[in-house]
Design a protein around this nucleic acid. Structure first.
Lengths: 166, 166
DNA sequence: TTGGAGTGTCAACAAGGCTGACATAGATTT
DNA sequence: AAATCTATGTCAGCCTTGTTGACACTCCAA
């Protein structure tokens, strides 16, 4: 149980109070994190779910529906509702896979890319301000802790997008 | 890949790519952050909204409904639905304010405190593991960036709980 | 007394999760 | 070729949690 000052290593940062502060920091910061895109989305007919889909399609053009499902961690029924409106509104297009014709590779249209940019510009602006205010070392720590907080599966998704097995 | 090295004015950590990584880190980490309590809540008849209410009531016993509304950032109708079930299930009790009898000061019951503990134990365990893996300096950076990411209003809520105006 | 603040509540609605069941096209295995 | 598995879509229904709008009540303060 010994939590607080434990011998040679202070470990003050592991007290329940410190952990509580961390938990609340996540809660409040996540609100800020989503606030700007949410504001934009509110004026259009889209929601946070559309933002997420568009974000990942932009980042990995040509990804399949299953891959997107894996990234988002939702059911295909849920994703399909979102994707349908994105198709209907000409923000995303699906191209039949070349080797496996069952797959639908997803791509943003020009219009979709524009929406993606407006959303992520807002979000990046806040992130940039926070990064700038905190400095490079804080940013390094930020990323390290967040990464450690992920489920192993999510961590693979997080890391493995540039090279990992598709 | 070159990460933090920002030399005299490098600011490598402010590239769009770095910002994108930060954005995705928030997304994936928040999933992990809520995963454990969600799992527990799923077995009971409660949801994430109940968790949040119980968390803040535990942290600031005797807070009023308006204060809780401010912390959670939802409408009173939405909060009321949650509070009603918490009252009905004897997890939270409301005491009429001594000076202002319109207020309802919220407190956890013994039963409510037990639920709170089981939920936050799960969440703290993950946070502790992440903190331990990352180390004190990373934790410091983590908190700094998150704080900078909050809306000013949320930041006041975040900071001002130990001493701020009750 | 009048106005406003703190609160509760009813009704209606929307987004975005979920499950279950079923359909179809194409890939793979036998 | 037949059987099966995989990737995907879709229909139907349900839940939680958010929203607005409207109205009522209690109590504090001017």
């Amino acid at each position: 149980m010994a939590e607080g000052a434990s011998g040679s290593e202070g470990l003050l940062f592991l007290t329940d109070e410190q952990l509580r502060k961390g938990i609340e920091a996540m809660f409040f910061a996540y609100r800020g994190f989503t606030a700007d895109p949410d504001r934009i989305l509110g004026t259009l007919d889209y929601g946070r779910a559309h933002h997420r889909a568009v974000h990942f399609i932009n980042r990995s053009p040509g990804l399949t529906v299953s891959q997107l499902l894996g990234l988002l961690g939702v059911t295909k029924q849920s994703l399909n509702r979102v994707l349908r409106t994105l198709f209907d509104d000409d923000l995303v297009e699906a191209r039949v896979g070349r080797t496996d014709k069952r797959e639908r590779r997803l791509h943003l249209t020009v219009k979709g890319a524009a929406l993606e940019r407006s959303l992520s510009d807002a979000q990046r602006a806040r992130m940039r301000a926070a990064y700038r205010a905190a400095g490079p070392e804080a940013v390094q720590g930020f990323r390290t802790v967040l990464e450690a907080m992920m489920d192993p599966e999510m961590r693979r998704q997080y890391q493995g997008l540039r090279e990992g097995k598709p």
